[in-house]
C-alpha cells in the first residue's frame, strides 16, 4: 500500500539526531513489547509480514506520531483482536474474561533462544530464476492496496541485477494470508539519476532486494 511507512525520498522530516550512549530500551515497557511481539509470533497465529502490514494500516497521523515500540504495541493489539486472542472488553478490564482459544504453540523458557536468532525465510524454489546477475530489468509500476516490499521510489525504474539472494517467502502473499508463495529474490541496483532525476548526486547508487514478481525485462 502507498502508506506513510514508505518514506524513501520524502522531504521535510528534519535533522537526524543521534543519541550518544543510547540504551537498548528507553522505558521498561518497550522491552515488554519486544518480548510480546516475539512470543506472539511464536504462536504462529499471524506472521512477521502481517505484523508489518498492520503497522502500515494504522492511520497515517498515528503512524507518524507514536514512538517505535508504541507502534509495535498498536500492531499486536490489533492483531490480537483480529485473530481472537483478546477481546475489547478484556482490554478495558485489563484481565482475561473469556476462555483462551487454541494456538499452534506457545514459547517456553527452553524456546526463548528462537527469539534471539532470525528465522529462516529461504524456501524451495518453484521454478528456475528468470533473471541472472548483469541483467537489465525494470521494476513494475504497481500500487497495490495490500502489503508490498517494492518501495514507491523504486517503481518503474530501470536497474541492474547484481545478485540472486535465493528463493524466499513472498511477503506480498504472506501478509494477505495466502501462504509462502516462494519467489526468487534479487539485489537490483539503480543509479541515483534513474531514481531521482537530473538533480541526483552523480556518485549515488541505490539498491533494493526485489522479489521476482516485481521485475520485468528492461
Amino acid at each position: 500500500m502507498n502508506g506513510v511507512h514508505d518514506m524513501g525520498g520524502m522531504h521535510g522530516f528534519g535533522k537526524i539526531e543521534p543519541e550518544s550512549d543510547e540504551p537498548p530500551f528507553h522505558a521498561e515497557w518497550e522491552g515488554r513489547v519486544l518480548g510480546l511481539v516475539r512470543g506472539l509470533l511464536f504462536t504462529r497465529t499471524w506472521n512477521i509480514d502481517i505484523f508489518r502490514f498492520t503497522q502500515e494500516r494504522l492511520p497515517a497521523r498515528v503512524y507518524l506520531d507514536v514512538s517505535y515500540y508504541h507502534r509495535w504495541l498498536l500492531s499486536i493489539t490489533q492483531s490480537a483482536l483480529d485473530y481472537g486472542l483478546v477481546e475489547r472488553d478484556e482490554l478495558a478490564a485489563g484481565h482475561a474474561l473469556h476462555p483462551a482459544k487454541a494456538v499452534e504453540r506457545t514459547m517456553k523458557l527452553s524456546d526463548a533462544h528462537v527469539a534471539y536468532v532470525r528465522g529462516p525465510f529461504g524456501r524451495t524454489p518453484q521454478a528456475e530464476p528468470r533473471f541472472k546477475p548483469g541483467d537489465r530489468v525494470r521494476t513494475r509500476n504497481i500500487n497495490p492496496l495490500g502489503h508490498t516490499r517494492l518501495p514507491r521510489y523504486a517503481r518503474d525504474k530501470e536497474g541492474r541485477v547484481e545478485a540472486i539472494r535465493g528463493c524466499h517467502v513472498y511477503p506480498d502473499s504472506k501478509a494477505a494470508g495466502k501462504g509462502d508463495d516462494p519467489q526468487w529474490l534479487y539485489t537490483v541496483a539503480f543509479t541515483g539519476r534513474e531514481v531521482w532525476g537530473e538533480q541526483a548526486d552523480p556518485s549515488l547508487s541505490v539498491s533494493i532486494d526485489a522479489f521476482e514478481p516485481y521485475l520485468e525485462d528492461a
Binding site: L34, G35, G39, G94, A96, L109
Partner: peptide, 30 residues
C-alpha cells in the same frame, strides 16, 4: 502506554499465550 502494555501482557498471560518469565529472558538477552 505503560498501562496498555501491562493490560495486554496480563490478559495474554492469563490466557496462557505468553509466559512473563520468557519475556524477562528475551529482554535480558537484548
Amino acid at each position: 502506554v505503560q498501562l496498555r502494555v501491562r493490560a495486554l501482557e496480563t490478559i495474554l498471560t492469563e490466557k496462557g499465550y505468553i509466559d512473563p518469565a520468557v519475556l524477562d529472558q528475551i529482554v535480558e538477552h537484548f
